[in-house]
Amino acid sequence: MRQLTLDVRAEPEPSLDNFVVGANAQVLERLRALACDPASAALYLWGPQHGGRSHLLRSTVAAARAAGQEAMYLEAAAVGTELPLAPGGLLAIDDVDVLGEAGQVALFRAFNDMAGARIRLLASGPCAPRHLALREDLRTRLGAALVFELHPLGEEDAARSMERHAAARGLRLAPEIVPYLLRRGRRDLPFLMAALDALDELSLTRQRPITLAMARELFDSQPDREATPKRSCPPAALDPKPPSDPDIP
């Protein structure tokens, strides 16, 4: 039998509208406001990996651009010794915990220039500001931002969003499929959606509807059942070598 792999297809562009809200309604409202209101502000989102942080940062930037504003999304690894500060713009920095030494100074300076330049900063990381292993002057600035924890989806929300995802793709799922996926797989959305996509693929190949047996086969064919499927946006890698900060000879 052919080896089956969990793989994802081209995801729809991340938007604030297609984020599954769960217990994060307040965050979403704030991000919508941040995208449209040019008043200077700083927000910090934290939560586990695969919890939707990058989705929210990217989609807030997209929403700001749609509202006619300057906005830019940067992974921490892409941050050099300075950050671009367009007056009145929105700057989103993902995964601040992997900022190198020079990148930390750059973000620190961006915070210092924030009020004067009327910029908005949106940052994300894996834990609350007080637990970030960053320079203290930067860490406290993140702690002074409006801080939100992103709460993972409960099983009910995850099930609902899988059903919606399936319906959007014209998939007909037997009622036992979603509970089965929740039982057998990791309960984070990227994994679950990829599992659905893989089932869709299998059902198309075989020209047969999705059945529980097919789902079982999919999981049994995976040597590593915990493996998280490929993500549409890879996690930011550590900058191999942060730009050196030498003084002039």
């Binding site: 934290w46 500001p129 007080r130």
Partner: peptide
């Protein structure tokens, strides 16, 4: 304050 203090350290 839960979000800020981050119990899940």
């Amino acid at each position: 304050l839960k979000d800020l203090l981050g119990a899940h350290s």
